[in-house]
Design a binder for these strands. Structure first.
Length: 783
DNA sequence: GTTTAGGTTTAG
């Protein structure tokens, strides 16, 4: 998406177009051309009346002519506008107007043969992040950032939504709800797919909807309990004394991830739909309500966390499939983790097995064989190898002990759809799929290294291969899972001896990790001040937003705008809050720099808006206006956001200076905008992210509690980045599962080699000895 | 046109 900054003063756009978007000639607009950062300028030669599409969305079509290219045969193009932008443009655009469109979508024109215009048309809407600039008119659009839009225009809701306790028999309504239960679409016994969805909302009423469609894609794309949905035109009936929702003609749905703080992006098959600030607000409210009123901790699990005798939802990639018999079908999947129990292997005829043989072999010990039955077979057969799946309510069944490999675990997807049993295909765009892909890709390297040693082996018929991953993993388990980075010459000391000795001293130990605290790993991340040695919790995002709202109450001081070393733009949100937002772009030699090198300061922005800005700009500093100049916010807020790290300062040790102190840095030849440098000139003592954990170690002589205090060395994961990276969180969880595998007997736990030191802590009343882990890191093959 | 399913685990 393009970045289009329209400078707005008193509501009138008067800025030239940003330098990085480039004009594109009509004859260069071709299907497949990347139109990001391109704009098209043309003159209106024809406009059609404003109309409404079947779903009520405004639609406006005009024809633009590119007069600069009079020599080309085709010099005009259709422009299709949707939603609010259509309505607005229809009011101000007239014949002969010359204007600019950016952020358009180039789509093959179905009417090119008849109207003789360009063989593509341009589609624009606010939802798509488009912007229209008409000379001399107020801006119709937006100050638009890479992936979000600050809209200047207010949008009145077109649809009325009924809360779930107000539903009446025989009506057709629009509604919102949080998914409490769902059955992923399955093949019904009739002609359609069916999906059953139970919704709840803050009225505390519940509605079960039975949705049918011949088109799988038009059923709601619900991936988990807690997702938020918007249904349009759903029919309400009474059934067995309760209200029931059922699809009616024109049924349409949007689905949103229900996790607080994740991007609000609708999942839908509808080509055109209303999606405005109203929707965003409603989804936020429902997310917040659900977070405190709905238990959404589903039965999701990784293979490494599978418990026998339980049902769970598995997110995985399909690597093989095979027909087994008339009532069952085999899916071979993996999720990058290893089930801690022996798992079954379903034998199938070689010719029935689909999938890449090399990969199936390579991953054989990380693969779960899932047998699916009856009604699920049809869907299972149609799945594409390589696709990402969520298989709901898989049964992890304890196998019979008389089997030759003892008691193994079997995976069944039983027939029927009770408890939402079924299979859903996740799109590549799904954040969890992205995460999984990244994760699987990062594993591939290790696997392929292992494969080098067996590359000469025949890959066919290798069920008893000696050089498989299983034995590799077993070898790993005999080697220590943590190693020393120093002090190799030291001898081990047993824990009892250490506990009976005086502090301070240093020891090398060999022990097992019996348990650790906190179990919720994100709780182990703290902020540490190396100056006063204080530790504190990482502020929750919500607190920070609250602080921002407080600072936004003070109106921005326009006297501080556009100083010698920065340019400023301000605008007001058109929602009820009428929030004023100012962005100050720091210049170098009086020129704006490339966004990736630019530091921006923002007044009145929300946390989410700032995160978006960090994707585009080098650094973001939240600021507020005072009479004397721009200042940092209270130190409960970060003083800097950069990449995916939020930097905080120590309240005790910092003496914040005015923002103007940054200007010498901006004047440097090539400002590096290093966080430490920024902190220093702003008088901030930066806090460092650190993992703080308590390990209970045992070695057969005594248990000993040792603290881990680690910036990044132990886990080889920067503590500063883990809170914003699901991938790193998953990696850390896997590491902990290797160090201390759940459900394992003490004998079967792996050994850790650690370097620890004891130290004294004394106060008036007591004296205690503590232990801390040093110079130790997770072994290379564990990471 | 208005079936299909209408939540609450298979039993392989």
């Amino acid at each position: 998406m393009p970045v289009l900054l329209l400078k707005v003063v008193n509501g009138v756009a008067e800025t030239p177009l940003p330098s990085h978007i480039q004009r594109e000639d009509l004859n260069n607009l071709r299907e497949g051309v990347d139109c990001t950062n391109k704009y098209f300028q043309g003159t209106v030669t024809l406009s059609y009346p404003l109309t409404k599409l079947a779903d009520g969305t405004d639609f406006f079509k005009i024809v633009l002519q590119d007069l600069s290219n009079s020599c080309t045969r085709i010099n005009s193009i259709n422009v299709l506008m949707y939603g609010k932008m259509a309505e607005d443009c229809s009011k101000v655009l007239s014949h002969g107007d010359n204007f600019v469109i950016a952020g358009f979508k180039l789509v093959k024109s179905p009417t090119a043969a008849e109207d003789g215009r360009h063989d593509c048309h341009l589609e624009v809407s606010e939802d798509a992040g488009s912007a229209v600039y008409v000379r001399g008119y107020p801006t119709l659009s937006c100050l638009q950032m890479p992936t979000f839009t600050f809209c200047f225009t207010s949008v009145a809701p077109k649809y009325a939504y009924t809360s779930l306790n107000q539903l009446k028999d025989g009506t057709i309504v629009n509604l919102y709800g949080v998914v409490k239960f769902f059955k992923p679409p399955y093949v019904s016994k009739g002609t359609d797919y069916c999906s059953v969805v139970t919704l709840v909302d803050p009225s505390n009423a519940k509605l079960t909807c039975t949705l049918f469609s011949g088109n799988l894609d038009s059923l709601p794309k619900i991936y988990k309990v807690g997702d938020v949905v918007r249904f349009h035109r759903i029919k309400i009936r009474e059934y067995n004394g309760q209200m029931q929702g059922i699809t009616s003609g024109g049924f349409a749905s949007l689905t949103f991830d229900g996790t607080v703080g994740t991007p609000i992006v609708p999942r839908t098959s509808s080509k055109v739909y209303t999606f405005t600030d109203e929707e965003v607000k409603t989804v936020k409210e429902l997310r917040a309500w659900a977070a405190s009123n709905l238990s959404i901790s589903g039965p999701a699990a990784k293979l490494s966390g599978v418990q026998p005798m339980l049902f769970f939802d598995l997110t995985c990639q399909l690597i093989g499939k095979a027909k087994v018999d008339g009532s069952s079908f085999l899916l071979k999947v993996w999720d990058g983790t290893k089930c801690p129990y022996p798992t079954w292997k379903v034998s199938v005829e070689d010719r029935e097995l689909e999938g890449e043989k090399g990969l199936l072999y390579q991953l054989q010990n990380l693969t779960a064989d899932i047998l699916v039955y009856d009604n699920h077979m049809q869907l299972a057969k149609s799945l594409k190898i390589g696709s990402f799946l969520r298989i709901y309510s898989v049964h992890a069944k304890q196998g019979s002990a008389d089997n030759e490999d003892g008691s193994h675990i079997e995976f069944h997807l039983h027939g029927g759809t009770c408890y939402g049993r079924g299979i859903g295909v996740l799109p590549e765009s799904n954040p969890e799929v992205k995460e999984l892909k990244e994760f699987l890709e990062s594993m591939d390297l290790e696997e392929s290294q292992d494969m080098e040693s067996v590359s000469s082996l025949e890959l066919e018929g290798t069920s008893n291969s000696v050089a498989d991953l299983e034995s590799h993993l077993q070898r790993c388990q005999q080697l220590p899972v943590t190693v020393l980075t120093d002090h190799q010459d030291l001898k081990n000391t047993d824990l009892k001896t250490i506990l009976n000795s005086t502090a301070p001293q240093q020891y090398r130990i060999r022990a097992k990790l019996r348990t650790y605290h906190p179990q919720k790993l994100y709780q182990s991340v703290k902020l540490h001040c190396s100056k006063c040695n204080s530790l504190q919790e990482v502020p929750a995002g919500d607190d920070f937003d609250f602080n921002l709202q407080g600072s936004a109450v003070t109106a921005p001081n326009t006297e501080l705008h556009s100083m010698s070393w920065y340019d400023s733009i301000m605008w007001t949100t058109q929602d009820q809050k009428q929030r004023k937002i100012v962005i100050h772009f720091v210049k170098h030699d009086e020129l704006l720099q490339h966004p990736k090198d630019t530091l921006v300061m923002i007044e009145g922005g929300t946390l989410k808006e700032m995160w978006k800005l960090t994707k585009r700009f080098k650094c973001v500093i939240p600021v507020r206006s005072t009479e004397d100049g721009l200042q940092l916010l209270d130190l409960s807020s970060p003083f800097l956001l950069q990449g995916n790290v939020t930097y905080y300062g120590c309240k005790q040790c910092s003496t914040p200076k005015p923002i103007n102190s940054l200007s010498p840095l901006a004047a440097e030849q090539q400002p590096s905008w290093e966080p430490t440098e920024i902190a220093e000139v702003l008088g901030i003592e930066p806090l460092q992210y650190v993992f703080v954990m308590k390990f209970t170690l045992v070695d057969g002589t005594a248990p000993l509690n040792a603290y881990l205090f680690d910036y990044e060395k132990f886990f080889q994961i920067p503590a500063s980045e883990i809170l914003t990276s699901n991938y790193l969180q998953q990696k850390m969880e896997m590491t902990m599962n290797t160090l201390c595998p759940p459900g394992r007997k003490l004998d079967d736990l792996p050994w850790l080699e650690c370097f620890i030191k004891s130290y004294n802590v004394k106060d008036e009343t007591k004296h205690q000895v503590y232990y801390q882990i040093f110079d130790t890191t997770v072994a290379e093959d564990v990471v």
